[in-house]
């Protein structure tokens, strides 16, 4: 139990520090258009890299993972909300898992 609590504490520390230090240390505004553009693109790059190829292992079955990915892409393209996309993707993955298993 001590090992687990220590691990949780360390995880919390290395999650908080990257969030806190830059905003705490950075004074004033950056001038460079290059750096401003770089920072502007961060959410898109991070989300892209977080999605793929990690999503292929999301459900433990590549076929249902890809089905879920396509479902989420279609719903997101039509600008459905976070909850709708998440919940419908889960349902489609579940149903496609049953199909793969029994047919």
């Amino acid at each position: 139990m001590a090992r687990i609590l220590t691990a949780v504490f360390l995880m919390a520390a290395v999650t908080y520090l990257p969030r806190f230090l830059p905003v705490a240390l950075m004074k004033g505004r950056l001038k460079s258009p290059f750096i401003k553009s770089f920072l502007y693109y961060i959410p898109y790059a991070v989300l892209g890299a977080m999605i793929f190829p990690g999503i292929l292992n999301a459900t433990g079955n590549p076929v249902t993972s890809v089905t879920g990915m396509i479902t989420a892409l279609i719903l997101a393209y039509f600008e459905k909300g976070l909850v709708t996309v998440a919940v419908i993707s889960i349902i489609i993955v579940y149903v496609s898992g049953l199909i793969v298993k029994y047919f």
Binding site: P43, I55, A76, I90
Partner: peptide, 17 residues
């Protein structure tokens, strides 16, 4: 197992629009 897709689905819902 199916719920493993939820995190990725949320990322997709943020980045695609």
């Amino acid at each position: 197992d199916s719920m493993g897709i939820a995190l990725y689905a949320m990322f997709i819902a943020l980045v695609v629009p």
